[in-house]
Nucleic acid binder design. Structure first.
Lengths: 123, 123
DNA sequence: CTGAGCCCTGGAGCGCGCTCCAGGTCAAGC
DNA sequence: GCTTGACCTGGAGCGCGCTCCAGGGCTCAG
């Protein structure tokens, strides 16, 4: 089991050191292990948690919901609830993708319209 | 050509009255016509502009970029630039959709994992 | 043992995109 | 004409998600 300094954890996770501290303060990330002197020592498990958190953030899950998920992860009896939360979130993501796709089509139309205008002007 | 009060424009566009004023102040929306007493009078053209702005906002175009697009729309000589801006934005939207789709797959995996855990526990 | 560079904590500050407020003007039904 | 409610302007405030800072402690190469 490898361990990582805050700087390493930041680099590998893609979050900044400040964000890692912030997530820990907010209870999103479980309390990270410490060295004798109080410095954080990240484990592989922490990194994989961070990796999944990145996925949730990328898909627009708000901090407050992330916090609830993080809390539930502390209690093994909450698996069903966690799965439910993720299923709900997945539905949100589907809606996002659907909206974005519709809007994207709109952009295509508008671009085509511009191209037409530009073409006409060239005549 | 129908006209609309601020309240009607807000309701039809889906933006709030405050947001409409804000967009106008920021130069995103061209200066809206006024009544003798100084009240805004929105036209069908304004509403269709707003509708397209909604599309750009929904796809995450930042205010500053919106402002530049709005400015360019004042000048008919900028069609090519506008088309270029939209093409760039469309590429961003494609990237967003692609990322979201990848993350969505990740969620599916995680949910499946939870379901497996829950199933095992039930035995 | 020392110095340079990480890291610590608590709390303030920031950028975005609105949202709200005070204090006053306009519009329209009665 | 008066009242009621929508609207005006300029500017302050807010919620989110970080990001930065001061003032100090840890660590490790030399």
């Amino acid at each position: 089991m490898a361990t990582y300094t805050p700087a390493e954890a930041a680099q590998r996770s893609g979050f900044t050191i400040d964000t890692l501290r912030y997530y820990e303060r907010e209870g999103i990330l479980p309390r990270v292990a410490r060295s004798a002197g109080g410095h954080r020592v990240y484990s592989d498990a922490d990194l994989s948690t961070l990796d999944f958190l990145q996925c949730l953030r990328d898909t627009g899950m708000p901090i407050e919901r992330l916090r609830r998920y993080g809390e539930m992860c502390q209690d093994p009896a909450t698996m069903t609830d966690r799965a439910a939360l993720l299923r709900e979130h997945a539905a949100d993501v589907d809606a996002q993708i659907a909206l974005l796709t519709r809007r994207r089509a709109r952009l295509t139309e508008k671009i085509a319209w511009y191209d037409e205008q530009i073409g006409d002007a060239a005549d």
